[in-house]
Design a protein around this nucleic acid. Sequence first.
DNA 1: GTCTATATAGGGATAGAC
DNA 2: GTCTATCCCTATATAGAC
Lengths: 207, 207
Amino acid sequence: MKTKDRIIQTALMLFNEEGESNVTTNHIADEMDISPGNLYYHYRSKDDIIWKIFLNYEKKIRTVLEQKDVNYASMQDMWNYLHAVFDVISEYRFLYRNLIQLMNRIEFLKRHFRHILALKSQTALTIMSHLADDGLLNADQQTIASLADQIALTATFWLNYSIAIYDDDFDEEKKLSHGIFHVIRLVAPFLTENDKALLDELSTQFL
Amino acid sequence: MKTKDRIIQTALMLFNEEGESNVTTNHIADEMDISPGNLYYHYRSKDDIIWKIFLNYEKKIRTVLEQKDVNYASMQDMWNYLHAVFDVISEYRFLYRNLIQLMNRIEFLKRHFRHILALKSQTALTIMSHLADDGLLNADQQTIASLADQIALTATFWLNYSIAIYDDDFDEEKKLSHGIFHVIRLVAPFLTENDKALLDELSTQFL
DNA sequence: GTCTATATAGGGATAGAC
DNA sequence: GTCTATCCCTATATAGAC
């Protein structure tokens, strides 16, 4: 693996573990056993590294959000979709931990992240509209629109919320599952009785 | 007004405007036209200043969350309550902008903030249980519990979310009203028809 | 209580040799 | 591509005079 790629990989790992602002370029170089000078040969600034990491994130989240060929016809599809979204968020969670600060510091990141947030909300809207059309979800358009926003907000800040309320050693995987259920529970009251039962089953399986 | 108090006041203002990590002790002293040395005569560290500001915040939010004598019997009461919560959050919004970072840096703040979050969720639960008992809200206990968590999460991160999605010059007051409506819409599907109509009326008035 | 001056430390980033 | 050495800057915090 090339040094250039290892820097990205190591930086991402450290950012996620320690928080972006607590990780210096020297830490990254130290962790990789290379010199700070070497690091700056490959990237001209710390923000440049962050930006490259963000581009990887953007690519992945877009892949998840823009898959057109999926037919969201069941709770299981919904679960899979949410799991994919939460997985990507978890993989790049440092972005979400200091979101406002990063957006204010890096102008491009702000614009791109806004697009992604809008896309998240839009995708949630599309899925739920499909479910409503198929008679799997009983809610008017106004309610669905609110739910879509709420889902985007929840997905975006769930990890922060769970860090804020749970003990620090709370299992990472459990945090994710909790978040997904949290989102599904938002939608649950509008599901058919059949799907509600399925939800209860999934609950006992994962929580 | 004493210098000691002016420091708190000025620091809070700058933290909210610029973000805590972008405001140095020198900036605070500059803004007040005093010397950095003078500032450190009154407070022994920056975190000490933050801690004192947090104590003021804690006092205010507890006053709002712990008022026992209010009878939540109408949408208007709910609106007033939410407005009070969002107002305090807005007044101390720097705490919410960098929540995770601050919690990790200041151990006391972490513990105290956790208590407040739990209290927020608990209060929302109590209010909605009352509404349900009075027949104003149609939802089972499981749904109400989910809603309570969701309300706490939304109140906590709404300002960050609106910063993330809206243009920077979006009116502060409007952001707040939007947040309150966002929370109310979570509850709306479970209200009586009468209250839903009232909600629509409030919507046109404030949005 | 307030000031000026300064210590101390650390982070981002560059120059130049190899 | 990689290293060593170092510059520059800024932030927190302190010492000591007034």
